[in-house]
Design a binder for these strands. Sequence first.
RNA 1: GGCCGAGUGGCGGAAUGGCAGACGCUGGGGAUUUAAAAUCCCCUGUCCUUAACGGACGUGCGGGUUCGAGUCCCGCCUCGGCUACCA
Length: 954
Amino acid sequence: MSKYNPSVVEAKWQKYWEDHKTFAAPRLPSDLPNNPEGKKAYVLDMFPYPSAQGLHVGHPEGYTATDIFCRFMRMNGYAVMHPMGWDAFGLPAEQHAKKTGIHPRITTEKNIANFRRQLHALGFSYDWDREIATTDVDYFRWTQRIFLILFNAWYAKEQKRARPIDELPIPDDVLQEGDDAVRRFVDDHRLAYQVEAPVNWCPELGTVLANEEVVGGVSERGGYPVVRMPLRQWMLRITAYADRLEEDLAGLDWSDSVKALQRNWIGRSVGAEVDFYIGPKDKFDEWKNARSGNPFPRKSGDDALRVFTTRPDTLFGASYMVIAPEHSYVERLTTPEQKEIVEEYRRQASFKSDLDRTDLAKEKTGVFTGSYAMNPVNGVQIPIWVADYVLASYGSGAIMAVPAHDTRDFEFATLFNLPIKQVVAPAPDSSASPDEVAKMETAFTEKGVAVNSGEFDGLPTDEFKTLITSRLEKAGLGRKTVNYKLRDWLFSRQHFWGEPFPLLRELDSDGKPNGVVIPLDPSELPLDLPEGVTFDASKHSPEPPLENAPDSWLYVERNGKKYKRETNTMPQWAGSCWYYLRYLDPKNSSTFVDPEIERAWSPVDLYIGGAEHAVLHLLYARFWHKVLYDFGYVSKPEPFQRLVNQGMILGEMEYSGFQTADGAWVSASAVEVDKQGKATLKSDGTPLQTIKLAPKDVGKSGENFTLASDSSIVVLGKSEKMSKSRGNVINPDDVVAQYGADSLRLYEMFMGPLEAVKPWNQDGVNGVRNFLDRAWRMIITSEYESNALNAAVQDVEPNEEQNRVLHKTIKAVTEDVRNLSYNTAIARMMEFANFFSRESVRPKSAMKTFVLLLSPFAPHIAEELWSLLGATNTLAYEPWPTWSEEALKESSITIPVQINGKLRARVDIPADADATATENAALAEPKIAAQLQGKTIVKKIVVPGKMVNFVVKG
RNA sequence: GGCCGAGUGGCGGAAUGGCAGACGCUGGGGAUUUAAAAUCCCCUGUCCUUAACGGACGUGCGGGUUCGAGUCCCGCCUCGGCUACCA
């Protein structure tokens, strides 16, 4: 019998699309025929890192989702930009080089070739002429160019935008200090700047990591230990953009959860800075008077300790202060008696890695400095402690502790027996009991009304905050402040396989860098990686591999001065920060993207990728984009208008069954657990065993159950993340070989909502393949080795019912595709195929429409059927089918009739029946009539076309 | 601890406040076949009940709003993701 043969059909159409450049995007949207107004859709995938393992099934999930949308938009007359490329710098290729001596470029190119082959085999409608790799010199010359833009920029706070570094105003006092001071001042304001800072050095990976790449004290990649050590590093001043990165989220069509993640990461919090007096006690009033009426000073000065708080309303409850061990005032505040103990504490703290700090976080530590501060609002004297639960890097590195209303302070105060003073009482309408709060068993951290706060008693928290802040401001003792968790971005890596910095470090006569750094001129780009660098596997120092570069690369003479190249390279994030711009104009050799092209295609209309990039990549890319926007290189303030995160695909369900006390495994196909905790295990429908669960497990599902009676364990429906070690990895190549690319695409979209986490199920792939076979047979004859049309397919008009099914399908599929609800769109098409397969006459026009609807999902089989239905051209640009509401109308409908809200019967009524007719029909229904017998109808709810409900009494 | 999301049959999942379980998988039965595959048809939430019909219960738990709640509100529980001494 003739059967759909994917391997032949798919190869045929992939070649056709390639030969005809079917999916080439026009230079400008308006270059597309019949598109004068320039309708466009820029649909972007997060480009993959071409690993040695090849694609996993998670890649095609997002890629199919975007591909369906692209094909849909093309058929709707939009110019579509749908490119693909490679995020190809990265550590694995370099580590491979260390092991084997094979150059990272060779490994990378091999992996790219494999990825390219796999993606081609899935029939994605990419414009392959726009393919880029971040490792191409022609690409990263522009990454270097953009770095220079950052390097040559400073952030003008008042104007909220970046400006050229030449325009940085130099204060007079700096000018008077001389050229060196001016240079340092300028360098300190660049968006790319150097610091000598403690960094996260990972000996195992041979590199420094960004804070974001260290998770719980170990490296995110590989989980290797990370130690803190000082090193000269390049930083990018992303913090300057914190407020814009936060504010502009509001206008983006991103999920609330990703927005929340980014907001969380930026960590904006509004509060107040307040100065606590630390000078001689008798001079307190003098100090206050001097401050009064003057603006809050830029720096606290020697006689005050500055804190940041989000709860200035609790100032009256401050019973001690804490400064971070690294705070610059520690020495000054430590009294001779406390010196030894404080120094020891600081020493201990400096040894603690992030891991230790996290691990030890359960128990708070700290020591008293011996000094006291005076509370500016009431003159109360309070002790100053040093403790590492206060971070030097946040706020001012010092806090006022209000143990009654902060959990951490409460813990600390309890541990060290420090006073706890309540200053907030629960609001009268709150659920918290005032008595319990007053007992002080925990910190009361919610809002409420002020108590024990002098003249402010009775003020609600928010009002109090505003009032006290403005009072402090007038008194010159504090001011409203906004703080961010976001830190500047550590932008240098001790790698070979990354973009070299386009920078030269000036050398003194003794050959040592003197601190002067000059940028290369854009005309000197690209700066390629040198040949002849050896990879030393035994290297365990932070020295970058490029230090081993040949002198001819490393040293440069210019204007009689000697320079050495910067030997750090950029992090992998660099290339992915702007790739979406390069796709638009990938061959341009005079600029990274032509402004006319950028204006026409930006922003990205739909961006789909994994949630693992919800913070870092998206934040970094937005940051670069905003810098480019400030300088007019791009036309929109945000790069990605709509973002969707595909959910992870888990491995197949592993077990279903139970293990008896003696270790024997009994497999079951189903386990039913009732509310009393009785579990029945079934195999092929027949009950195997009934067991009683331990009470704690009642109501759980997909979990381990412990039995109450013995120690055997029931496990069912366990599905875990795919990983090599678990041996549950599904290789897309195998699926394509067995079922075809269309089936893989269709299955991944049918599994469930795009954003949900879902387990793989190989039988499900078979299921969608069955659907494709069925669709094929609906149109093509079953005769052996014939591709003639099925005899049922005829050139006739659809009858009324067929027409209704057809138009319902068009409508549902169209709306579902728009919403990316692909799983339900596919279900609607299955219903269509189920219906028409049973029809003995199948109008050819309906079959053609169906093929068009199917084509974005399963493009190969659709093209084949399209051509068998008589077309000579690709269907990629056929107009998307439209539906008529008229055709959807049914003459008669069935509606439910309820009595007291319970379904009692169904009645058939004309679709256009009005309320009275509907009610009468319901009353006439025999079952309803019988039930209403002898009862009083108190209320009738009649929704024409929907339902009837009678509320009765008696 | 904080933020975000989720909890519906044996499984993946459908359901603008209006017939819970679309569609698919699994399982069962039947047709076709020498047989199998493939294909086609029927059944497949639980319980009670019937010759046939039918009935009760049912969307994590407890309340509430409503003629009517998987859906809205309040309070919990469990699971997942992210984050974590951020003042």
